[in-house]
Amino acid sequence: MTKQRAFLKWAGGKFGLVEPINRLLPDGARLIEPFVGAGSVFLNSNYERYLLNDVNPDLIDLFNIVKRRPQRFITDAAALFSPLNNNASAYYALRSEFNACSDPYRRALLFLYLNRHGYNGLCRYNRSGQFNVPFGQYLRPYFPQAEIEVFAEKAQRATFTCLSFEKVFRRARKGDVIYCDPPYAPLSTTANFTSYASTGFSLEHQHELARRAAHTAHKRGIPVLISNHDTDLTRLLYADADLHSLQVSRFISQNGASRGKVAELLALYTSPAAASNVVALTPLQRKIAP
């Protein structure tokens, strides 16, 4: 299967990890993603149905609009990708329009424009809920028509929701598989936790996600795969899971010289029978934690 790119640029997107993720994802009738992001795992997996969730309502509104009327959206969005709009004054005017706009369709068009013209494709809001990513200064921002069309076609198999991850877990049923790509834990104890949408994802959220994953797999028989940084903290949080570590290229600072490999952890929770080796591995995992 040809790898498909998401039509949005997305910090921490999983396009480069879809192969190891797919190797670990169990078979099932439906894949549930409580933190769908740009949707790379959705686009590069093959389940009959999908439940795709995110706490960012702008993202979910965009996905639902693309699902329902892709060609109209493509035509209208393409008009924004004009050289006349690829300068700082136009960008900040359209960003201000986005922040003042309450129409979901217009916001969806502007969200795609901001994603492709803003700095590094970031999606960031201030505490007042205002989108505040600066202008990216790209020579010729790419309009992802082909990627939107692929997404829209596959989205016919998906339901999109804007809920907390706790509520999404409660919607899971036997035969489902859950993949979680939460805002990542810090690489060091001095780093701040990732701020996502208008709220943060705290240590308590990280702990609750791990607790629910273990409960869902061990008590309800629904497998859960979680991706995160490979740190002492995440190895402790996911001690009940089967852990897989790999090296991933990351832009770990704005300084290009600081680009390098970061250890990534994939934690697979399965039913007790399928995970019978996990208990024996746990002490070893803690000993070898970086």
Rank of each mutant, 00 (worst) to 15 (best):
V55A: 12
R5Q: 10
F143Q: 09
A77I: 03
G28E: 04
A275T: 03
N86G: 03
A100R: 01
L52R: 07
I65E: 01
S258Y: 05
G16N: 14
A172E: 05
S89E: 15
I288C: 12
F165L: 08
A155W: 00
G37W: 13
A214D: 04
P34G: 12
E147R: 12
R124D: 04
S198A: 13
E97L: 11
L265I: 03
A93F: 10
T282D: 10
S276R: 13
Y50R: 08
S188V: 08
N86E: 02
V18P: 03
S195Y: 12
L203I: 07
V177C: 00
R235K: 06
F193R: 09
N86K: 06
H218V: 08
R211S: 13
L163V: 08
H229K: 03
V248L: 10
A90L: 11
K9R: 15
L266P: 01
D58T: 04
L246P: 08
Y91R: 00
P34T: 11
F160N: 04
Q254I: 02
R95C: 03
L265N: 04
L52A: 09
A158H: 02
V18Y: 09
S253E: 08
R127C: 07
K261G: 09
W10I: 01
G39R: 09
F131P: 01
C180V: 11
V248N: 09
P134I: 03
P20K: 13
R157Y: 06
T199P: 01
L187S: 04
N85S: 08
F7I: 06
E204S: 09
G39W: 13
R95I: 00
C180W: 06
Y47L: 06
S245H: 02
R68V: 06
V133H: 04
K174G: 12
S188D: 13
P144T: 10
V133C: 01
T75C: 02
G12M: 12
Q247Y: 07
L59P: 06
P104I: 05
L110E: 00
N86L: 05
Q206T: 03
F35R: 05
E153H: 13
Y238E: 01
L110T: 01
S227R: 01
P34K: 14
I178F: 07
N277Q: 12
T199F: 09
V18Q: 11
P186H: 12
N53P: 07
N46W: 09
S164G: 15
A191S: 15
K67D: 08
F135W: 08
L139Y: 14
Y184D: 06
L243A: 04
Q206E: 03
A213D: 09
S128A: 14
L266A: 10
D181H: 02
Y238G: 02
P57M: 13
Y119W: 05
Y179E: 02
Y47S: 12
Y119K: 02
D242W: 08
L110Y: 00
D61K: 07
